[in-house]
Amino acid sequence: MKSIGVFDSGYGGLTVFKSIIKELPDYNYIYMGDNARAPYGDHSFETVYQYTLECVEWLFSQNCQLVILACNTASSKALRTIQQKVLPVKYPNHRVLGVIRPTAEVIGAHTKTKTIGVMGTRGTVNSESYPIEIEKFFPEVKVVQQSCPMLVPLIENNEHLTTGADHFIKKYLEELMAKAPDLDCILLACTHYPLLIPKLELFVPPNIELLSQGEIVSSSLKKYLSNHPEIESEIGKTGERIFYTSGDTETFDVSASLFFGKVVKSKHIHLQC
């Protein structure tokens, strides 16, 4: 039986994976983190595409017919090319889904002022993927963006809830809200950022909703499987969860447990650097 592949450049995708398992606990999953080459946020489009494609093809080789890119940077810089140019030619029976489109499809329901903010890595923000996708579904919604390059390092060094992180969190929030004082929803467009919610809530006005992607993506995946029984019926349902990392397994297991909320035991895979 096949598994559902879940990919991220590092740890953040585990927050999405956690929500997917909560929504769809019975399926078999393989999680793969490309920690040896993370972070992807500051890499070029071409580099992110090459890295993402290599990881997707590896998951295909592990009998994953369906792969979820639980990474905003990979979704913004690589997904479209993989879907349009690679799958039809090399893997016509495989599917790769991302996190941006499911979010864009529903985000309009979360704003009354029709103005939302997006916090993400430089790569995600510079790609303009969210303004482009949101406009397709909600052309009346204004989108303002803020790149937050210091947040991922703070999270991955477990410094995100310390007072030392306050400067950068307040700085990014103030810069974002200055661009659109009437925004009433902030999308956390990096899968690391849900770990910041306790800290963000200290500085975000109560009228502004903080929106993370885990529940959105898991709900979208549930609908997708329901609409594609030819794929759903092939997936094993013994609740198997296997974790792989291209980095050091001991380091991965410690940090991954923080993101996943449970003890993680990973296996190492070697990728071309």
Rank of each mutant, 00 (worst) to 15 (best):
L176P: 04
F260T: 08
T111A: 04
T249R: 02
S266G: 05
A74M: 09
F243L: 05
E57R: 01
T111F: 02
V264A: 05
T73Q: 04
V56K: 00
M177F: 01
A178W: 01
L87G: 03
I4S: 01
K199A: 06
K222S: 13
V106F: 03
A178T: 02
V96G: 08
I4M: 03
F203C: 07
A165T: 10
L221P: 04
I107C: 04
Q272S: 15
H270S: 14
A70M: 10
G33W: 01
V125P: 02
Y11M: 01
F137Y: 15
G10E: 05
H268S: 07
S61I: 00
V67L: 00
P149R: 08
L161H: 12
G33I: 01
S147E: 14
G247M: 10
G123M: 10
K85P: 03
A256G: 07
K77M: 10
Y172D: 02
A256W: 06
T73P: 05
I186F: 13
I197G: 10
S219N: 15
K267P: 00
Q83G: 03
G261F: 07
R80C: 07
G164D: 11
T121V: 04
L24S: 15
N227Y: 03
Q50A: 15
P139I: 08
Y49H: 11
G12S: 08
I242A: 02
I30G: 00
I132L: 15
S212F: 09
S266D: 06
L188M: 11
M150T: 14
H228L: 02
E175T: 11
D34C: 07
A189I: 05
E46Q: 07
S212G: 08
G214K: 11
C185Y: 08
D34P: 02
L24A: 14
Q146Y: 12
R101W: 12
T103Q: 02
Q145L: 06
L271V: 13
L154Y: 14
Y224F: 12
K265A: 15
E174M: 13
Y40W: 08
G247R: 06
A104K: 09
P194M: 09
D34A: 03
E128V: 13
S266W: 01
V118H: 06
V56N: 00
D184M: 10
S44H: 11
E23I: 08
I20W: 04
A70L: 05
P39M: 04
K199H: 03
A180R: 09
Y27R: 07
L187T: 12
T162F: 13
A78T: 05
I208C: 10
I134L: 12
S61K: 01
V141Y: 07
D253F: 05
C71P: 04
N227V: 02
H270W: 10
S147K: 12
L202I: 09
K112D: 12
G120P: 08
I68S: 07
G214D: 14
V16H: 08
D42M: 13
V263I: 15
E159L: 11
I20M: 10
P149Q: 09
S257R: 11
T113Q: 09
L271H: 10
T163G: 06
H160D: 02
